[in-house]
């Protein structure tokens, strides 16, 4: 028995470098082929004049970056990317906290409500976005219909939710928030259950009311988990192009374009691969910063 266990141990110990390499090689392969490959291809394209349907390609230096930086739609796209990402995270964090607080107590039908809240997350993003496109449509919008029905607007004078730049930005923001809310809520609910019950009880005995307990005790205690939710949300929103693409296709007049949707519009739809590649490279430094913070949060969670 002792011999056998010794042997097993020695196999594990002697071959663990190889075994370890074998175990993580699929991950490395995956990253190299599906992430690294396109990434280096994008860098390569960004310094060229590659176009779809044109086999010839020349090195053009920083020319692509210069022309992008001068283009007004790029500036709008970068502004929108930040607006959508940051504002939706604020909306989502506040909303998800409220939802998590209200879903924490047990009541009849809680399971059903939890399920319904989770739906936007489990449904394909395109499906949800198409649903919203109908809800906000210029002719068939149910919101407009409801507002007309209660006589807030006269028929045909109601706002065009996706047709006016400001409203379109607000609409995209709304759909992004709707989309991320479930994810954030579920994470925060899990975070809440991890807080021992006697801590809010101690706060109650200490004389704190509901809001003080939430704002000064419970939510600060959930800071690591909220950071995780926010960082994930930032990445999801920042890199997403489906919502904008389906709702407005970047319009009207490129006013809701984001970095990914503009890169797609120019690079794929407009056949200017080089410009598309250059635009998407602007995502990289920002995502690196976010990734850095994610690793820090993860590390801190490990240490505690």
């Amino acid at each position: 028995m002792a011999l056998a266990s010794n042997k097993i141990k020695s196999i594990g110990a002697a071959q663990s470098p190889l075994l370890g390499a074998a175990m993580f090689s699929p991950a490395v392969l995956y990253i190299l082929l599906l992430v690294g490959g396109p990434f280096f291809l994008a860098i390569f394209y960004a310094f060229s004049d590659a176009r779809i349907g044109n086999a010839e390609m020349h090195f053009v230096g920083l020319e692509n970056f210069r022309s992008i930086l001068q283009s007004p739609s790029f500036r709008v796209a970068i502004r929108n990317s930040f607006i959508f990402t940051i504002c939706s995270q604020i909306v989502v964090t506040v909303g998800a906290n409220i939802l998590a607080i209200s879903l924490e107590k047990t009541f009849r039908g809680r399971g059903l409500i939890r399920f319904l809240i989770l739906l936007p997350w489990v449904a394909p993003i395109a499906l949800g976005a198409i649903g919203w496109k109908w809800i906000l449509d210029s002719i068939y919008s149910v919101i407009t219909w409801a507002l007309v029905a209660v006589h807030i607007y006269k028929p045909f004078s109601a706002p065009m939710w996706l047709g006016e730049p400001r409203l379109a930005i607000a609409s995209v923001l709304l759909v992004h928030s709707w989309r991320l809310m479930p994810f954030s809520t579920v994470i925060l609910l899990a975070g809440r259950t991890a807080i021992p019950k006697d801590i809010p009880e101690a706060a109650a005995v200490d004389g704190a009311g509901f809001w003080r307990t939430q704002l000064q005790i419970v939510i600060p205690m959930m800071r690591p988990i909220i950071s995780v939710a926010v960082l994930f949300g930032l990445i999801f929103t920042f890199t997403d192009m489906t919502v904008v693409y389906i709702l407005t296709a970047g319009g009207p007049f490129d006013s809701t374009q984001t970095l990914p949707s503009l890169a797609f519009a120019l690079g794929i739809q407009g056949s200017d691969l080089a410009a598309g590649a250059a635009i998407s490279l602007f995502l990289v430094p920002l995502l690196v910063i976010i990734a850095y913070f994610m690793l820090r949060v993860a590390h801190r969670a490990e240490v505690n």
């Binding site: 021992p196 006697d198 801590i199 009880e201 101690a202 205690m221």
Partner: peptide, 11 residues
Amino acid sequence: MVFQSYALYPH
């Protein structure tokens, strides 16, 4: 009240 776990606020 002093709780069995002390329930100190960890942050």
